[in-house]
Design a protein around this nucleic acid. Structure first.
Lengths: 209, 209
DNA sequence: ATAACAAGAACAAAAGGAGAACAAGTATTT
DNA sequence: AAATACTTGTTCTCCTTTTGTTCTTGTTAT
């Protein structure tokens, strides 16, 4: 966020705290609540910082109104859009294991050429089940989030609401077949209700560093 | 960045450090923090350099304010534009053919994870010479521009100043061997002078759309 | 010899914190 | 509805710590 005003360390800290914990407060917090949450003992001290943030345009002026500490619309816009740019890297997918989600989601700047304009996410592949198709252990795959697929597409499939895997899919009226691209591995057959599609493969990338 | 002011070695060093490590600091660093990060023991010494950089227009004047040293908007602009334009997609590489350069170079937004912080460019692979390594016809490869390589690396090699190819390289005093990753293809042997390295493979990506 | 640089002392301003006191808002009781 | 007690924003003073600035002194490199 650019601004003529330069915040001091503590002011920036207060602002960051508000940005990160805004959902935690049901109502806009009082100064005392904020003090408690941030480990301060004096309202007066905090008030000085808040006042500066108001001058800088990050917080709405709270003319004696109680529970008045709320972020400016502009501040919110600038800081929510900026952080969610890119495609989320949500975790790793290993054949026969549930997706292990990351606690802190990273975002990658994936080029348009290997993703779609629909919502996408990134998984890191563990294992060799797609090796014959040039998808190796450690590669990243870009997945377009959707719950259906055509036969022959590569999908992220959740089996029995437990194990997630990346495979070719073939769907028939009373059978769904998940086919690895590894000549040493077998296709797996399921009842259609056992298999839930979580997205289809739209891109892949690999680092050689 | 050109300027009438000429920087001394140390001043340039400080500026470079700030440019490269700006993300490392959550907040603009204080003189003490910078000293620590750069291995200096005296604020006073650093202050002189900072002062000169302010005169030269690279750093915002910090008139007694305790808000840390931050680079000028202009300085930032000049030094980040290069990386923000993305990585150039320069053309296609086919085994045994010169790189067919695009007349109008496109730029792709490649994530940091599959490139390096050195200059990189992108080629589109034509042919199957690296198929056993999961690099398929139509894939993009990210190449770090350099003219040397270690044995076993995958490089873009120009043969007899005419044909470009993507292969494993093995360099011996009297012989340079280019090895495809395709069990149906033969390794090729050359005199070292025949082979010019144009870059090494650092990343790969593929679209399934 | 001159310029570049490092180290450290000393200083003043800025930043930050604690707490008291007050007044305007809010909730509760009568 | 009015009176009351409580909460909360605001202002102020006093204090400690941090940090930018200035100087002096000594060392190194060209």
């Amino acid at each position: 966020m650019q601004n003529i005003y330069h915040l001091t360390r503590k002011q920036q800290q207060v602002l960051d705290f508000l940005l990160e914990n805004q959902d935690q407060f049901l109502q806009p917090p009082t100064l005392d609540e904020l003090c408690l949450a941030m480990g301060l003992k004096s309202r007066g001290s905090l008030h000085k910082h808040i006042q500066e943030l108001i001058n800088a345009g990050y917080i709405e002026a709270l003319n004696r109104r109680q529970r008045g500490v709320r972020l400016t619309a502009q501040c919110l816009a600038e800081n929510t859009v900026a952080s969610e740019t890119g495609t989320p890297f949500v975790g790793a997918i290993a054949a026969g294991m549930p997706i292990e989600a990351l606690e802190n989601i990273r975002y990658m700047n994936v080029p348009d050429e290997i993703k779609t304009d629909k919502p996408c996410y990134i998984l890191q592949v563990k294992g060799d089940s797609m090796i014959d198709d040039g998808i190796f252990d450690g590669d990243w795959v870009i997945i377009e989030q959707q719950s259906y697929a055509s036969n022959g597409q590569i999908v992220v499939a959740l089996i029995d609401k437990a194990d997630a895997t990346l495979k070719y899919i073939e769907q028939y009226p009373h059978e769904t077949v998940l086919i690895p691209a590894n000549k040493h591995m077998q296709a797996m057959r399921f009842h259609p209700k056992q298999v839930e599609i979580q997205g289809v493969l739209v891109g892949q990338m690999r680092s050689y560093k």
